[in-house]
Design a binder for these strands. Structure first.
Lengths: 214, 214
DNA sequence: CCAAAAGTGTTCTATGTACACCCATGC
DNA sequence: GCATGGGTGTACATAGAACACTTTTGG
């Protein structure tokens, strides 16, 4: 907090981890440890031991969620005076997506981390809100030209589920037929990956309360 | 070099600085300081004093080129064991573009830095070749959807000069009329920014030897 | 007067967007 | 049997790609 100006800045890794729960896009947060931020939440941090940055991020995510293999990419490195009132701080931030189904194993038990829907975020420390906003922007952007949407879904899924995911993240309704065509002819999926039922209406995957929009 | 595994990894800033010289895209390099890399070249580094990363990069670029205001963005943060044989090293890399004309003031005099055309690169240390390749990819990519091309040109330029710049960087010939339309209707330029002569062929800006391909 | 570069529109193609009906299942 | 959701094809608009000639100046 009150380090002399000659010492090296503090270096840390942070992770922005998204998943789908209850038809919402959620992000993983932990309570702020620093007393001056008590009551606030923050993006999970990972210690920098060696210089294997991505590995460190992945390890931390596995600790918190129990999920080992996740989609992971570097988001940005934040370093600027004014981020933290007293401390010179550099945060290398990673960005991860976790399939909706893989969490049921080992999430909320031992750690104090929690999943928050993006519409119901608590107060975050420092610039973590901006970081999160940027991560969401990146996610939306990547949806338009890559296949990241998959990374939030279980191994088998219908095109409708994929489309719902896209709509959820982009915050807008998409045309069913155009979506199908786009995804298929993008070569992202080779063939309809799994047909859960016949031609007509398949059984709903999750019996939701009838009020849910979907 | 032989630090114990408990100490913090070494953190540095590197810059990839591009400019146009002699109708070529060039990058700024300095001779490797480390004796084990003697004879090789490397991307210029900047010391990390406080946590003002971008400012540090800009300062270093001004030191080396004499140019204060440059286009500057963060490229990537490289951290991985195996980058350096013995040293645990994290490099936050920035990426800059310098207008062709602004260099004539203060470049090669005091420092040992040199501009190298991308086709005639010397041997670089560590993974600096990959970093450079990635920077070039980013530059090409950004050309297609933003206006970065300008950043390499003087204040006034013709659309033809801009097109030549694009062709140089992308390594392919572009259609004159389509290029004009694309640039103008992208709203990047409001109007023909400067007409150096009448309707016909203007005086050549740089009298080049007749062998030069244009 | 000839070579070299600048300027200017139109056609075609591909891509993206809007839109309506039938079928199977769950209740 | 009816409401809900899954599946399917076509017409239109927009954006991108291909293409040729005239004008001016430098040598």
């Amino acid at each position: 907090m009150s380090e002399p100006a000659v010492s090296a800045p503090h270096l840390e890794i942070r992770v922005v981890v998204f998943t789908l729960q209850e038809s919402r896009l959620k992000v993983l947060l932990i309570p702020a440890s620093d007393s001056q931020f008590s009551g606030k939440w923050m993006l999970p941090d990972a210690p920098i031991l060696d210089c294997a940055l991505e590995k460190a991020a992945a390890r931390r995510i596995e600790q918190l969620t129990g999920v080992g293999e996740v989609y992971l990419e570097q988001l940005y490195t934040y370093g600027d005076p004014g981020r933290h009132p007293a401390c010179r701080l550099i945060s290398i931030v990673y960005f991860a997506l976790i399939p909706a189904d893989s969490l049921q194993t080992a999430s909320d038990s031992k750690s104090t981390s929690r999943w928050y829907a993006l519409e119901e975020l608590p107060v975050l420390v420092m610039d973590h809100n901006e970081i999160l906003t940027y991560a969401l922007r990146r996610l939306r952007y990547k949806l338009e030209y890559t296949a990241v949407g998959f990374e939030l879904l279980p191994e088998f899924f219908t095109l409708s589920e994929l489309q719902h995911t896209y709509e959820l993240i982009l915050g807008e309704k998409l045309d069913k037929r155009n979506f199908r065509r786009r995804i298929l002819q993008a070569g992202i999926i080779e063939a309809p990956p799994h047909r859960r039922s016949g031609e007509g209406r398949p059984a709903p995957a999750l019996p939701l309360p009838p009020g849910c929009r979907g």
